[in-house]
């Protein structure tokens, strides 16, 4: 329903929205700008930065010094791997909780969420020691597994919410139509939940991509993802803003591009799913 909003109010709201949006985006923009300057220019007064020479120097240096592709590939394996495995575990769990709730379902859900309230550093030592004893330090297997465990509550919660939106009668109809549980999930539940699953997948890939505590703690060289790549350009001595900015832009670019493309996918998926 349309609400009466004066043009003046609309204009003010629009301007405010743009300002807030710009303020939130500004740090990333500034990183982008710094990455195209020399170290010397990058620490100048902001106005001087804008007017000083633009250059790809920092990117060249970063490219030369680090094996970007290896870090990138580690990030891909870890984020996609942990999310996909997480989804494989989460779909049946969320199905059970959404469609066959028991007396303790709500408690289980809350308990799962509560694991997110524990600061990760609280379990650092046990997890570190477990990884060490299993010989999993600095391996992608360990990170895939740990990030999967970390994000599992979120994946299950998201799927649970999406599944609950799906009318139970449709699944019952499938059962009446002779579908086994497996077919019910594959032919009816999953296609209807595609937008939800897609956004769960995306969000968790992004979360895993940006995870910087475990990825820094449990990797050294072989399994180090892009977070470690960024971290290696921070320094207490000497100038590093430009190189750090260039490294950051290189690290977030893939996920930004993916987000931008899948945004269209997502919107299409959502309108498609709006049929009820």
């Amino acid at each position: 329903m349309a609400r009466a909003v004066t043009t003046q109010r609309k204009t003010i709201n629009t301007v405010i929205a743009w300002i807030v949006g710009f303020l939130i985006f500004f740090p990333i923009l500034w990183i982008f700008i710094l990455s195209f300057h020399t170290e010397g220019d990058a620490i100048k007064h902001p106005f001087e930065v804008l007017t000083s020479r633009w250059t790809f120097e920092s990117y060249a240096t970063v490219q030369e010094r680090s094996n970007y592709f290896r870090h990138f590939w580690n990030s891909v394996v870890i984020s996609v791997g942990s999310t996909v495995i997480g989804l494989i575990i989460a779909v049946p769990s969320a199905w059970a909780m959404a469609f066959v709730p028991g007396r303790r379902t709500k408690d289980v859900l809350m308990w799962m969420l509560s694991t997110k309230m524990l600061p990760p550093v609280g379990v650092l030592l046990p997890i570190y020691l477990i990884c060490q004893n299993l010989g999993l330090l600095d391996t992608r297997v360990a990170l895939v597994f740990i990030l999967m465990m970390i994000n599992l509550p979120i994946i299950i919660w998201m799927l649970y919410t999406y599944f609950r939106e799906i009318p139970g009668e449709i699944l019952e109809a499938a059962r009446m139509d002779g579908a086994s549980l497996r077919n019910e999930v594959i032919y009816v539940l999953l296609p209807m939940a595609v937008p939800g699953i897609a956004s769960t997948l995306l969000l968790n890939i992004i979360l895993a991509w940006n995870e910087a505590f475990w990825t820094l703690t449990l990797t050294a060289a072989k399994a180090a993802p892009l977070t470690a790549f960024i971290a290696s350009y921070s320094s207490p001595e000497g100038l590093f803003y430009a190189k750090l900015s260039a490294a950051s832009i290189m690290a977030i670019a893939p996920i930004l591009i993916m987000g931008w493309f899948s945004q269209k996918q997502l919107v299409r998926g959502l309108t498609f799913g709006a049929v009820k």
């Binding site: 820094l216 050294a220 060289a221 072989k222 180090a224 470690a228 971290a231 290696s232 350009y233 921070s234 320094s235 207490p236 001595e237």
Partner: peptide
């Protein structure tokens, strides 16, 4: 294999 990190990290 190099692992480069900021001093405190």
């Amino acid at each position: 294999e190099w692992v480069t990190l900021e001093e405190n990290v």
